[in-house]
Simulated assay, not measured.
Amino acid sequence: MLSVIAYYRVSTKSQGESGLGLEAQKAYVETACKAHGWEVVAEYIETVSGSIAPVERPECAKALSHGLPVVVAKLDRLSRDVEHIASLMKRVSLKVATMPQADNFQLHLFAALAEQERAFISQRTKEALQALKDRAEGGCEVSIQKIANRSAVKPQGSKDVALATAREARTQKANTFATTVEATIALAQSKGHTTLQAIALFMNERKVFTANGGEWSATQVSRILKRLIVDAA
């Protein structure tokens, strides 16, 4: 049996006090440990922003000091910065409960792809805003009205800020919902429901509804899993 150190991180004081996300993280780790013969010999919990380098976080530093593999529920519990991840890999072996078979090279690749995707999303948002402005300048009445609606809420010079704020609110709402169903998905996986369709059926049987109040499909489960892996907590 492989001895591992469990590390859990929540991002804000309120999350730390309420346990938001912590229960789900532990459920993922416990499921992975049972399935792959890992034994947690110590665990560390920290309430800190993911922007702080892992080695500069007191509890994470303690976890690393053991010299044993460190297991986390999701890679972003360590960091979303690919440089941080690469630095950690030089010190310890990393285990991720949501990707238990991945080795350090694969995790490094995943971190790089996730960082690139975030950059792509940012660029696409900027391009969509510019396209809207271009259509408005070309006389498109719908685009003109959309810009006018935003301007009525924010000053003309703050349109980008208003758009970013609205996008952040939508993202936060989606992330919060994903967190509320995370433990149920982990429970489904622990009971052997490993396919997207099987998880969807598990959720529907237990009357756990989607964010819109409907039933789950494999596609919706896939979207939630992706958000849980690369969410912006």
Rank of each mutant, 00 (worst) to 15 (best):
M1R: 14
V10G: 00
K13H: 10
Q15M: 09
L20V: 06
Q25M: 01
A27R: 00
Y28E: 00
V29E: 00
V29S: 00
C33R: 00
E43G: 03
I45T: 02
I45W: 01
S49K: 02
A53H: 05
E56Q: 09
R57Q: 06
A61Y: 03
K62E: 04
K62S: 08
L64N: 03
L64H: 01
V70G: 02
K74T: 02
R80D: 12
D81E: 05
D81Q: 12
E83I: 13
H84C: 02
H84M: 05
S87D: 14
M89E: 10
R91Q: 14
S93W: 10
L94W: 07
K95P: 06
A97S: 13
A102T: 11
A102Q: 10
F105A: 14
Q106G: 12
F110R: 15
L113N: 12
R118F: 10
R118C: 10
F120T: 09
R124P: 00
K133Y: 02
R135M: 08
A136W: 00
E137K: 11
E137M: 11
E141P: 07
E141C: 07
S143P: 02
I144N: 03
Q145K: 08
K146E: 07
N149H: 13
V153F: 12
D160H: 13
T165A: 11
A166N: 14
R167S: 15
E168N: 15
R170M: 15
T171I: 11
K173N: 11
K173Y: 15
A174V: 06
T176Q: 15
A178I: 02
T180S: 11
V181H: 01
E182M: 06
I185E: 03
A188H: 02
Q189Y: 09
Q189V: 12
S190Y: 07
S190W: 04
S190T: 03
S190D: 04
S190V: 06
K191I: 10
G192C: 09
H193W: 08
T195G: 09
L196S: 10
Q197M: 11
L201Y: 12
F202L: 02
F202E: 04
A211K: 09
N212F: 10
G213R: 07
E215M: 14
R223C: 05
I224E: 05
L225P: 01
K226A: 13
A233C: 06
